[in-house]
Computed example of a mutant assay.
Amino acid sequence: MAIPKHIKSLPVGTPVNLQLLSSSAGEFRKAHPSASGRPYDKVVVGAAALQHASGSPSQTPRILLLKRAPREPYYPNVFELPSGKVDPDDPTLKHALFREVKEETGLDVAEILAELEPMIYSTEKSTTGAAGEEVLVSKSAIQLNYVVSVSPGTIKLSADEHSESCWASEADLAGLDITDAMRTVIREAFQWASSQ
């Protein structure tokens, strides 16, 4: 996925921008507008939860992936990172990241290890206008992604959102249904893990 010019490309192993993580969604929108110059409609945070097989850093790294529920309107049955929208109640992006990982997996973020390139996308849906006509609504979104470690525990999925989870190695990605943009983010997380 090509990153638009208004978002700086991050080298592998980029340290976490703590100032950015302490921003609210509103502060982020003002400081980092979309390519059109308008604020993003939606700010999303995503976590590449990293684990090493057998608990040893020398072993093959694995990343936690969640399979979207079959009834999801966007990308049903497709694997993704634990992620979600930053809510107005979230005081900071960091709070949103920790909350989303907990809500979607039942696990706690132990540490934020690295910042990955953002994923920029738009969503479209049809709604009915005031005069009964069909209206297409398009929203811009940016997903800020981080490599994290999580506390040990049992994964507890929200059945409304995800149907299964797996700890996938980079070799496992070929056999999983993942969007190209998400695959790029996951591969960057594996690159970071390999560089450590």
Rank of each mutant, 00 (worst) to 15 (best):
I120N: 06
P88A: 14
I178Q: 00
D108H: 11
K156M: 12
E104A: 04
D87G: 12
S23D: 13
K85M: 15
P88F: 10
G106E: 10
H95M: 15
E80C: 09
A168G: 04
S169L: 06
K5F: 03
L176G: 08
L18H: 14
A114Y: 02
A171R: 07
L113H: 00
Y146N: 01
T127H: 11
V101P: 04
S163D: 08
S34K: 02
K67Q: 15
I155Q: 10
L50K: 07
E103Q: 14
S58K: 14
S22Q: 15
I178H: 00
K125H: 14
L176Y: 01
G37C: 08
S83R: 14
S140K: 05
Y74T: 13
A193Q: 00
S122F: 10
L10E: 01
Q196L: 12
C166W: 02
K67F: 02
V101C: 07
A110C: 12
E164L: 09
T184W: 05
E27L: 05
R68V: 04
T123C: 05
G37S: 06
Q51S: 14
T179N: 10
P4V: 06
I120H: 04
E27S: 12
L93N: 04
T128W: 06
K8L: 09
L18E: 15
W167Q: 11
P4T: 03
E161N: 14
F98T: 10
H95R: 15
E133H: 13
A2P: 10
L18P: 06
A69M: 10
Q51A: 13
F79W: 12
A96N: 09
S54Q: 14
P73D: 12
G153C: 09
S151R: 15
R71M: 11
D90G: 10
D180R: 11
R183T: 02
Y121V: 03
L20V: 03
K94V: 08
A35V: 09
S9Q: 12
K8S: 13
K8G: 08
L50H: 04
A110G: 14
L157A: 08
D160N: 14
K42V: 15
A2C: 11
K102L: 10
Y74M: 12
F98M: 15
